[in-house]
Amino acid sequence: METITQPSKPASAKKIKSRRFWKTAVQQRYLYLMSLPFVIWVFVFSYIPIWGWTMAFQKYRPNKTFFEQEWVGFQYFQELLSDDRFYMVLRNTLAMSFLGLLVGFTVPILFAVLINELKGRFFKRSLQTISYLPHFVSWVVVAGIVYKMLSTESGGVNDLLMWLGLIDEPIQFMAKGSWFWGIVTVSDLWKEMGWNSIIFLAAITGIDPEQFEAAKVDGAGRWRQIWHITLPGIRSVIIVLLILSIGNLISIGFEKQMLLSNPIVIDYAEVLDLYALNYGIGLNRFSFGTAVGIFNSFVSIILLFTANGIFKRYSKESVM
């Protein structure tokens, strides 16, 4: 593919190119057979429903057919972009997802690397199994535990700080807006670190052990092995995941924020997805909900292509 020779005459260039294309296509028939059916599959299940985007430009009523709907143009987008609350929730969303990316993405990598360095097989296995348990515990429960630990009444964290003499009276952690983003990020880390490390651990397993042996022979210490073999070995997984996560910066769900929030910190807690629910579907305003969805998709796609472009240029690894 990369070594196509420059055709000398422009007139026949097209023809040659087309002939080459079909020739290669026949050669690659198995590859086509293995992918095209699934492309069609994706078209049916993921692309056809996109007609629903037309709702954002209509005053959509579920009971009417497509042709009976009343068209309203960009009314819902204007409403969205002129709402002060929208910018507040956008700020919160980006702040928390950025923190999530910074911490929630890097720590699991580190965790996977460190697990890999453990010696005892039993310990290694148990740790792996146990570290991913919180993933299965619902946010309701986790938020409840976080609340209890940070409570001013015999909450574990306050008790500890008092005992250490760092504070004189308990801190109301959950009543401080400035702490909220951090608390969400740390809680999320606690819950998902083990689970998110699985994919990296799998990638580490794919590294040829001979490389480690060779490094040991060269007298490389543990940190150098990690730095020169383990991390580069899982680089492509890291980059692909990172690009996909950057595309997802704007849609971070709302469950954890909602469960951890309270009226005092609400200005820091409401995120875009909850806003879309509260002001869209929750009020049967499908059109407005769809408009928010389209906004989401556009931002995501821009982020995705930007991240992809940057990584493609500087690291040669990319999704597309």
């Binding site: 492309v39 994706v42 049916v44 299940f45 993921s46 692309y47 056809i48 429903p49 996109i50 007609w51 629903g52 985007w53 709702m55 579920p62 996909l244 595309g247 997802n248 579907i281 499908f286 909900g289 769809t290 969805g293 989401n296 998709s297 995501s300 796609i301 995705l304 999704v319 597309m320």
Partner: peptide, 20 residues
């Protein structure tokens, strides 16, 4: 690749999916 990756970021919503 492009065709697939876009599916991660776009969704038609509940009603079109249901009708499909």
């Amino acid at each position: 690749s492009v065709f697939l990756v876009l599916t991660l970021y776009v969704s038609g919503g509940l009603i079109p999916g249901f009708l499909l």
